[in-house]
Design a protein around this nucleic acid. Structure first.
Length: 363
DNA sequence: CAAGCGTGGAA
DNA sequence: TTTCCAAGCTT
């Protein structure tokens, strides 16, 4: 392993020791943190900003202090703890991963690339991050931050992802380093605070002396951005059914959008041209009334516009015995907050509660 | 390999 | 307002 000439690794680490953010999953510089904490934080941080992750991480670690605790938890509890964080396959994979770590590796996270990659939800990035940060191995995890830093440092004008493999190899050229875990975190902090996607702060960058994009005035044109894709708009009716036991909810299928999460019954989510406003998709026959207004939500690939229908029922208990409604159940309003309700469904709750006075007076 | 998969904050 | 996008993984 040969470090490329001129890479100012000492300046980078000095910058990190001075500027680094204090985060609950981080050890002091040069010390090695709990691999379980590293894993939980790295998965939570996938496509998610630090500020969002912090409260979830603290709750999660307090609830399940060790990987064996997580492995013994009901998946429903894990999803409830993840509610609002998004990309819920991460939570399902984490639970499966915890079981594998306990079954196959004696509740200790493995150190080898192949073993780590065999675990659910651990890909190339997370594997390398665990090896570098938790175990101090000589490896650079390549996330979007380090990818951006690398293409700028080497002034690579070829658009990603065709050059992804080359970028990954060039990033390894930042090694060897006496503190591989701190190097990884220093690069990610640099990407978040200095070498930002837009308007990078090159004047205060500890890598400026070796940066090809800086010396060639290419910092604002690299990296080249990819083509944008069109978003679609879908429409849905959602049904808020109250009984003496609470509000009717059900669990979504374990795969796909919001997999395994709790939802209020709804009809199909369709294009406006296929959408018919009304209660024809309702879970039961009842006196449905439509709440005023809509609930709006943006997913990654489409916007969702929801109308909410509400009714009361007496049919409490028998619901769970009907095969087609096998995963349906009533939840009292006070317990809704503990359900695995994703953000879009919490908007439904807020909307229904905001209309509550209307409902009571109507009987 | 491109698409699917959440959410909220910044510009 | 709209667009971008943030410590990616899976299929």
């Amino acid at each position: 392993m040969t470090q490329e000439k001129g890479f100012p690794v000492d300046q980078l680490l000095s910058w990190y020791d001075c500027e680094r953010r204090v985060l609950p999953w981080r050890a002091m510089p040069g010390e090695q943190p709990d691999p379980y904490h590293v894993w939980v934080s790295e998965v939570m941080l996938q496509q998610t900003v630090v500020k969002t992750v912090i409260p979830y991480f603290l709750t999660f670690i307090r609830q399940w202090p060790r990987v064996v605790d997580l492995s013994e938890a009901p998946i429903r509890d894990v999803l409830a703890s993840w509610a609002g964080l998004g990309y819920y396959a991460r939570a399902r994979n984490m639970h499966a991963c915890a079981l594998s770590v306990c079954d196959q590796f004696g509740a200790l996270f493995p150190e080898s690339s192949s073993a780590l990659l065999s675990l659910p939800g651990i890909g190339l990035y997370t594997m390398a991050a665990i090896r570098a940060i938790a175990y101090g191995h000589q490896i650079v995890p390549v996330d979007s931050n380090i990818e951006r830093i690398t293409v700028r440092y080497h002034a690579i004008e070829t658009p990603l992802p065709s050059v992804k493999q080359e970028v990954h190899e060039l990033a390894q050229g930042f090694l060897p380093c006496s503190r591989p875990g701190d190097l990884a975190q220093a690069l990610m902090d640099l990407g978040a605070m200095v070498c930002t996607p837009r308007n990078p702060s090159c004047a205060s960058c500890p890598l400026q002396s070796g940066c090809a994009a800086w010396s060639r005035s290419l910092t604002t044109t690299i990296p080249h951005k990819k083509a944008k894709k069109r978003r679609s708009v879908l429409y849905a009716s959602v049904f808020w059914l109250e009984s003496s036991k609470g509000v009717l909810v059900r669990s979504r299928p374990n795969k796909g959008l919001l997999g395994g999460m709790t939802e209020f019954p709804s009809g199909a989510w369709v294009e406006k041209t296929l959408f018919r406003s009304g209660e024809q998709d309702a879970p039961v026959r009842a006196e449905w009334s439509r709440l005023p207004g809509h609930v709006y939500h943006k997913f990654t690939h489409f916007d969702l516009i929801i109308e909410v229908w509400r009714a009361k029922t007496d049919i409490d208990v028998k619901f769970s015995e009907k095969s087609s409604k096998a995963c349906s159940r009533f939840v009292c309003k006070e317990a809704l907050e503990f359900e695995a309700l994703p953000s879009v469904m919490r908007k439904i709750v807020a909307h229904a509660f905001s209309c509550e006075p209307n409902f009571l007076s109507g009987g």
